[in-house]
């Protein structure tokens, strides 16, 4: 009796938060789905007739869509590649006993605390700016013409900025994993005649495998939806050279005021993200079981 009573009370008590959470998730999703089947442009008020798959076919056949998919892939894979490799390298270095490791570690981690908009602005104006930027100044001192990063290599520049932001995260996770390696294993390998490189390749790297999968999973989830860095630096341009899927959805619905197509794009993005997530979960599941 008492337990049934208290269970009912418990349900009653958590109901508000569950309801809020449901509304929070379900309502926007339902509305997005609903809008994606309407002709709904804010510049053309009046009727919003039901148009079936028109928005989807419009979004999917837009040449910008293919570019956006490719750009999203380049962005995600490029950043993953740089941060995982760089993270492993930094973790190996920071794992060495040396003077002042505490300070160095904090400095390595600090980029992670800078807001994406701020760091993108700093990179854009203080480093990559072709007139006032540090890189332009350095090029000038060597007598070279300054390189306009955000115009000439917009996507690569964004990959660089985002990598700079995520490198600390990868380093932190991998360093922690590295420090959990049993030192006797390394000593055993040393006695077995393994060189420093062999110890890294056969002992440390396999030990890091799980941590690497975790880094890949978490970063992919966040990297699929990069937005602030693009908005602040290139606005997706020149043309659509640095437009990813998130930015394309934003451009459709908020720059062209086409809510219908924007919603369809949002749904497409959700589906793609889920496909990626399923693949990643499989991969992680296999890796974490072993």
């Amino acid at each position: 009796m008492a337990t049934q009573h208290s269970r009912a009370a418990a349900r009653f008590m958590i109901a508000p938060s569950v309801i809020v959470l449901l509304l929070w998730m379900a309502v926007p999703l339902a509305l997005t789905l609903y809008f994606s089947f309407l002709r709904y442009n804010l510049l053309m008020p009046g009727e919003n007739p039901f148009v079936g798959w028109e928005n989807y076919s419009y979004f999917l056949t837009d040449p910008a869509f293919q570019t956006a998919i490719v750009n999203t892939l380049i962005l995600v894979l490029g950043v993953l590649f740089i941060t995982v490799l760089g993270g492993i390298g930094l973790a190996v270095l920071l794992d060495q006993p040396m003077w002042g490791t505490g300070i160095v570690r904090i400095m390595v981690i600090s980029p992670f605390f800078v807001m994406p908009t701020v760091s993108a602005l700093v990179w854009k104006n203080m480093f990559m700016n072709p007139v006032n930027g540090l890189f332009a100044f350095l090029a000038g001192t060597f007598g070279m013409a300054p390189f306009d990063f955000l115009t000439q290599a917009p996507l690569a520049s964004i990959v660089g900025i985002v990598s700079w932001q995520w490198l600390p995260f990868a380093t932190l996770i991998l360093l922690t994993a590295m420090q959990s390696l049993d030192s006797e294993q390394l000593e055993a390998a040393e006695m077995d005649g393994a060189s420093a490189w062999s110890r890294f390749w056969y002992i440390k790297l396999p030990h890091l495998a799980r941590a690497i999968t975790v880094v890949v999973l978490i970063q992919t989830i966040f990297l699929l939806s990069i937005f602030a860095e693009i908005l602040v630096t290139t606005n997706g341009g020149p043309g659509t050279a640095s437009t990813n899927l998130t930015y394309l959805v934003y451009a459709e619905s908020l720059l062209r005021f086409d809510v219908g197509t924007g919603s369809a794009g949002g749904v497409v993005a959700i589906i793609l993200a889920n496909i990626v997530a399923i693949f990643l979960m499989r991969m992680i599941g296999k890796n974490l079981d072993a």
């Binding site: 000593e187 006695m191 077995d192």
Partner: peptide, 25 residues
């Protein structure tokens, strides 16, 4: 050759690969 208190086997390698490791090196 040393045998450690914690055995210090390489957890991600099979027994065969563990035993072969010094030979491989």
């Amino acid at each position: 050759a040393m045998v450690f208190q914690s055995y210090a086997l390489y957890p991600h390698m099979s027994v065969r690969k563990n035993i072969a490791f010094p030979l491989k090196m």
